[in-house]
Nucleic acid binder design. Structure first.
Lengths: 204, 204
DNA sequence: CACTCCTGAATGAATAGCCATTCAGCAGCG
DNA sequence: CGCTGCTGAATGGCTATTCATTCAGGAGTG
């Protein structure tokens, strides 16, 4: 009750503030208990708001999960697009994609758990997610590979779609293993090992 | 009611019969609705038994899911071990592993959904699964890679653990994409494309 | 063979508890 | 006052699991 100073900065973004808090709390709660075992009441209390408040910002529990995905994927894809714009070498581009991918997940274990574990938790989810963000992410990888094929740095006989799935799958597995591992290690550096083998495998 | 001949062979396995029926029904139900959205009553009716009967064979809904995993992984690993025994070339061994992996999942879409989607649905599950079957499966791949390194067919500078994760991740992604895809295609042949790139990447 | 008694597998209605969502009202502010 | 934003207790629906009961068929008996 009684917040230090309330006026100045606390006026405008109570909205965005609380929404953010709920999203962050939900990420933590989902990561620790799994989506289906998480109670909305847990999320509310972790966010420091009342149960009902959650429904002022989200239509349902499910929408919370969606929002976490959407926000993260949108951010990740647009950030990647931006950084890739200034690059030429397709090999370097793939390295950058891998790095950004693992760096982002490696920086927030809870977020990583939600992505690697909870996202997989229902075909419905995967299909929805698949349609939107995932497709554009895979597309980013594929476009880079096709670019490399045109330039002659990657073998042109390969099916770019399959090749992009291989890279994605390998990175995804690194992330999944990382969250399951008891031993703490840096995730991002794994990307280099993956890329070494991958590039060696696809280079012309 | 009225079973043809009851004595001879019908005496022993009414038990295994029903257990099997429940397991098969559960695989279908879980695959279609997701584990958490599946009602035990749905499984029972799909299996053609009463709700209560399920509890004569399984302690809980969760144990049903476990049993599906355990049975499949055990079968897969021992089958793979057996086939690999008679082979020498590590490259061929990896091809065989990939083939068996995708062949098995490709032959039963429901089972594939349970494995690719439901298995990922909770950290708890993954940890338990991880401990048992998954580790031994990854270990099989790793052992083959190390064997290849000793024989000089694979680059010895590579970390075999990471390399095995890459291969597994790539195969896993093929399977996941396959179940999500609307278009029907054969899963197993994807293994060859994966192996072409993979072997090219790791060969000495 | 005919009959009775048992056994335990199978049943499915009832229970018990859980939890997402709602909403009547409260507090602070201008 | 009149809003706006928030609260949290109450509601309603749902479903895993239990358990009293049924019943088919095997065993024992005369």
């Amino acid at each position: 009750m009684m917040r230090s100073v309330r006026s100045l900065s606390n006026n405008r973004p109570p909205v965005a503030d609380k929404r953010e808090a709920i999203l962050r709390a939900a990420t933590r709660v989902f990561a620790r208990n799994g989506y289906f075992n998480s109670k909305v009441a847990d999320i509310a209390s972790a966010a420091g708001v009342a149960d009902g408040t959650v429904y002022l910002y989200f239509k349902s529990k499910e929408e919370i999960l969606h929002s976490i995905f959407d926000r993260t994927v949108d951010e990740a894809v647009s950030e990647a697009r931006k950084q890739l714009e200034e690059m030429r070498d397709p090999r370097e581009k793939l390295r950058r994609i891998a790095h950004l991918h693992l760096e982002r997940l490696g920086a927030d274990r809870d977020l990583a758990v939600v992505f690697q574990v909870e996202l997989r938790g229902s075909t419905k989810f995967m299909e929805e997610f698949s349609a939107a963000g995932f497709a554009s992410y895979l597309g980013l990888i594929r476009a880079t590979i096709e670019e490399g094929q045109r330039e002659g740095v990657f073998r042109s006989g390969l099916n770019a779609k399959v090749v992009s799935k291989i890279l994605f799958g390998a990175l995804d597995e690194m992330a999944t293993n990382w969250i399951l591992s008891k031993r703490r290690y840096k995730l991002a550096p794994m990307g280099d090992q993956v890329l070494d083998i991958f590039l060696n495998g696809v280079s012309a």
